[in-house]
């Protein structure tokens, strides 16, 4: 696989505090790489260093094989960024906002017009081209923010928490749009603290905390890192202690909690855990209203690695 971004031993300090600590990773052509970490973990700082907006103390950053610098215009032409904060002009309507930012990359008016229309279709703002930002809802504004960042059809797209404070409908729309961009061949870096989005979108994930990489891999590879195979949740009313103790002694059970009526059981690696539990409940004639099994999430991985929740 061809590497499009290489970050080697990146260190960035704010005064004496390390915001990014000896970070090294690569981004491969055509993949969606997730940067997952809680607020303050160094995701945005890493992105700003890659974009040559921030000075950094140590390290080398190469994009498309060349060292990144503020004057590397040919490289910049290939990059599109959607920043965490909405960056649009309140005085310009939707179309003009996209046209302005796209015009910084594409001089040809006809080509630009086509790109703008493609971007508008991609984010679903066809009906709002004459609207001003203040007339748009939060979700639509985020979509405009994305359109402004990707209208020039870059090869590399960096999305810095694009779904923060977005309604579910707009979030789905945004995630669909990102999938479409990948299908068109874009390489994407996606930073977020929403693990569900990472699981849906990303081919590989880097988990960051306090400026350091904790783990890198596909979601499955990362889940292998935790000692949990599955989590089973059952809704049962008024379970007695002796029953709970019996379940606790089932094979592979790691831990068990019961808060009437929710029984949660985590299992270590092993097969047929759900089937064995259902057979036992049937045999003991214990009625239950709902039962389901879950694979461990990236939050469990983060919990295992750091001892804290991703959203702490």
């Amino acid at each position: 696989m061809k590497s499009v971004i290489q970050v080697e031993n990146l260190t960035k300090k704010y005064k004496n505090k390390k915001a990014v600590d000896d970070l090294s990773f690569e981004v491969y052509e055509g993949e969606i790489l997730g940067l997952l970490g809680p607020n303050g973990s160094g995701k945005s700082t890493t992105i700003n260093c890659i974009l040559s907006l921030l000075n950094f103390d140590e390290g080398i950053i190469k994009v498309l094989g060349c060292e990144m610098s503020p004057n590397a215009y040919e490289i910049k032409r290939q990059i599109g960024v959607v920043f965490q904060d909405v960056a649009v002009f309140d005085e310009l309507n939707v179309y003009d906002n996209i046209d302005y930012f796209c015009g910084l990359y594409i001089k040809d008016k006809l080509k630009r017009k086509k790109c703008i229309m493609d971007a508008i279709h991609l984010v679903g703002l066809e009906e709002f081209t004459k609207y001003y930002p203040k007339q748009l809802s939060g979700g639509l504004l985020r979509r405009l923010n994305i359109a402004c960042g990707i209208a020039h059809q870059p090869k590399i797209i960096i999305l810095d928490e694009p779904t923060v404070a977005v309604d579910p409908q707009s979030r789905n729309n945004i995630l669909d749009g990102i999938q479409k961009l990948r299908k068109k061949g874009a390489t994407i870096i996606y930073t977020t603290h929403y693990m569900e989005e990472v699981e849906i979108l990303c081919d590989r994930v880097i988990i960051l905390d306090k400026g350091k990489i904790l783990a890198v891999g596909t979601t499955d590879e990362l889940k292998e890192l935790v000692n949990i195979e599955e989590k089973v949740t059952v809704e049962i009313m008024d379970l007695k202690k002796d029953i709970l103790n019996e379940i606790k002694n089932f094979p592979h059970v790691d831990s068990l909690t019961y808060q009437n009526p929710i029984l949660s059981i985590t299992y270590k690696k092993g097969a047929n855990n759900l089937v064995n539990l259902m057979d036992y409940l049937k045999k003991e004639s214990i009625p239950y209203t709902k039962i389901y099994s879950e694979r461990p999430t990236l939050n469990d991985v983060f919990l295992e690695l750091t001892g804290k929740d991703l959203r702490d």
């Binding site: 974009l51 215009y73 990059i79 960024v81 960056a87 649009v88 990359y105």
Partner: peptide
Amino acid sequence: ANMSNNGKRVAISPTSK
């Protein structure tokens, strides 16, 4: 770039400051 979000967008574009 250090004054506004729009400035950040302009700063990462391939246009001379």
